[in-house]
Amino acid sequence: NKEKKVFISLVGSRGLGCSISSGPIQKPGIFISHVKPGSLSAEVGLEIGDQIVEVNGVDFSNLDHKEAVNVLKSSRSLTISIVAAAGRE
């Protein structure tokens, strides 16, 4: 599966507009579980089932849900590497 990078700058009070969840035991990782229509996440093409592999240089493969949320909230400017639809297989 091809990795792609998206860049998101949080402007004003707009949030990311997506929710994440941890994958099942047999498929660990952090996946996008919800994308709000019209949100920044939707605008850059994030979709439900995409796996987040890295954010701002932080490897997401071994993070738990709480740590992942903290990384996503730690910066107003995010570089997110995803594997599209990895969670839909």
Rank of each mutant, 00 (worst) to 15 (best):
K2L: 07
K2W: 05
E3S: 13
E3H: 13
E3M: 14
K4M: 05
K4H: 07
K4W: 04
K4Q: 05
K5S: 08
V6G: 02
V6A: 03
F7V: 14
I8S: 10
I8T: 08
V11G: 09
S13E: 14
R14W: 05
R14K: 13
R14A: 10
G15P: 12
G15M: 08
G15L: 06
L16W: 02
L16H: 05
G17I: 02
G17V: 00
G17W: 01
C18W: 04
C18S: 02
I20L: 11
I20G: 00
I20R: 00
S22T: 13
S22W: 05
S22F: 07
G23K: 05
G23A: 06
P24R: 07
P24C: 11
P24N: 10
P24A: 09
I25S: 13
I25A: 14
K27W: 06
K27F: 10
K27Q: 10
P28V: 03
P28M: 05
P28H: 08
G29W: 00
G29D: 06
G29N: 03
I30A: 03
I30S: 02
I30E: 04
I30K: 07
I30R: 02
F31N: 02
I32S: 02
S33D: 11
S33P: 02
S33Y: 05
V35Y: 01
V35S: 00
K36E: 15
G38V: 03
G38C: 07
G38H: 10
G38K: 12
G38I: 04
G38N: 11
S39P: 03
S39E: 03
L40H: 12
L40M: 11
S41Q: 02
S41R: 00
A42D: 15
E43G: 10
E43Y: 05
V44G: 06
G45A: 01
L46V: 04
G49H: 02
G49D: 06
G49E: 03
D50S: 03
D50T: 00
D50K: 01
Q51L: 03
Q51A: 03
I52L: 09
I52V: 07
I52N: 00
E54W: 04
V55Y: 00
N56D: 14
G57C: 08
G57D: 08
D59W: 03
D59R: 14
F60A: 05
S61Y: 06
N62G: 13
N62K: 13
L63M: 05
D64N: 13
K66W: 08
K66Y: 07
K66D: 14
K66C: 09
K66P: 07
V69I: 14
S74F: 01
R76S: 12
R76Q: 15
S77I: 05
L78V: 06
L78C: 04
T79F: 07
T79R: 12
T79Q: 13
T79G: 04
I80N: 03
S81K: 13
S81I: 09
I82W: 10
V83N: 10
V83A: 10
V83M: 11
A84K: 14
A84L: 06
A84G: 12
G87F: 12
G87V: 11
R88L: 12
R88E: 14
R88W: 09
